[in-house]
């Protein structure tokens, strides 16, 4: 039983790492209905920029600030060059645009910083910590806490500020938002910048775990099942989806692994996601249209 709890908790914590990536998708999908394929590249780009600055002797927080500014500039450029000209086009066009964008961002990252693998040391040891009889990774605890703080920050932003209310207004009804004088383009830029910030946080944690390298952009593949389970429009859903994926893949690995064979961790989330698709296509927390008129 103790062992089970330890595996479960470890899985839940690790799952929040997936949630971090998924949240970036949710933000952009909610505000503009675009599935932003470039989110993974944004994660990579931010981690690479950060680690390269660090390696050139720039202090930690200065690197963080400069990377954040870079992500904001990127959001501004994307809004100007990609989103604005494509306004009113069907979602598939925008999706294709983000697909192209992801390669451009990766190309720029490579041109700027080169293609070698960088180690990233955030100063948190991965040594296990004993809590309530369970051995838990310190790093996982740290990233879980980071995810918690990020979600708190986002929910304050969305629920308490004018920008947040405008953002949700745009997510609900673009035409009505325009009709009361909300500037769509400004909102989109802000959303992409916030998604860039989330990408930066995810990039640092994932980069510290896996090393900063080009395959980092593939973390999106881990976020996909999370989105399917949690729904594309809910940050809470991204958290719960991450927890479900994290826990179930670890449990599957430990308990089913020996029977079916190793490597189950890699595909089990997709099986789970497919099952969810059959039962609940909008995800657990996916927003359904409010029907009543």
């Amino acid at each position: 039983m103790e062992f089970f709890l330890e595996v479960l908790t470890g899985g839940l914590l690790a799952g929040l790492m997936y949630s971090l990536v998924a949240i970036g998708f949710v933000l952009i999908y909610k505000a503009s209905g675009v599935f932003n394929f470039a989110q993974g590249s944004m994660v990579l780009f931010s981690a690479l920029t950060f680690v390269s600055l660090l390696e050139r002797g720039v202090p930690f927080w200065v690197s963080f600030a400069v990377t954040l500014l870079t992500m904001i500039a990127l959001a501004w450029a994307i809004e100007r060059v990609v989103l604005r000209p494509l306004v009113n086009r069907p979602p598939i066009t925008l999706f294709m645009a983000t697909l192209g964008l992801s390669y451009i961002i990766e190309g720029v990252a490579q041109a700027m910083w080169g293609a070698q693998v960088h180690g990233l040391e955030l100063g948190i040891s991965d040594a296990p910590l004993e809590i309530g009889g369970m051995l838990l990774s310190q790093f996982d605890l740290f990233s879980a806490a980071t995810a918690g703080i990020l979600v708190l920050f986002l929910s304050l932003l969305f629920n308490k500020t004018r920008i947040g209310i405008s953002l949700r207004a745009v997510a609900d009804d673009q035409l009505a938002a325009l009709a009361v004088g909300i500037k769509l383009q400004r909102i989109w830029m802000i959303v992409w910048a916030v998604a860039g910030f989330v990408g930066l946080v995810a990039g640092l944690l994932w980069g510290a775990r896996l090393g900063v390298q080009f395959s980092l952009s593939l973390v999106v593949l881990k976020a996909l099942p999370v989105l399917i389970i949690g729904g594309f429009t809910s940050i809470g859903g991204a958290i719960v989806g991450g927890l479900i994926i994290g826990a179930s893949e670890k449990l599957a690995e430990v308990y089913l692994g020996p029977i079916i064979g190793g490597g189950i961790e890699n595909w089990f989330p997709y099986v789970l996601a497919l099952l969810f698709l059959l039962v609940r296509p909008a995800g657990i927390f996916g927003e359904r249209a409010i029907e009543r008129v």
Binding site: R162, I165, R168, A169, D172, D173, A176, E287, A289
Partner: peptide, 12 residues
């Protein structure tokens, strides 16, 4: 704005 409260609608 269906998912916003009445007051948030007005504020917007």
């Amino acid at each position: 704005f269906a998912h916003l409260t009445v007051e948030e609608n007005l504020r917007s």
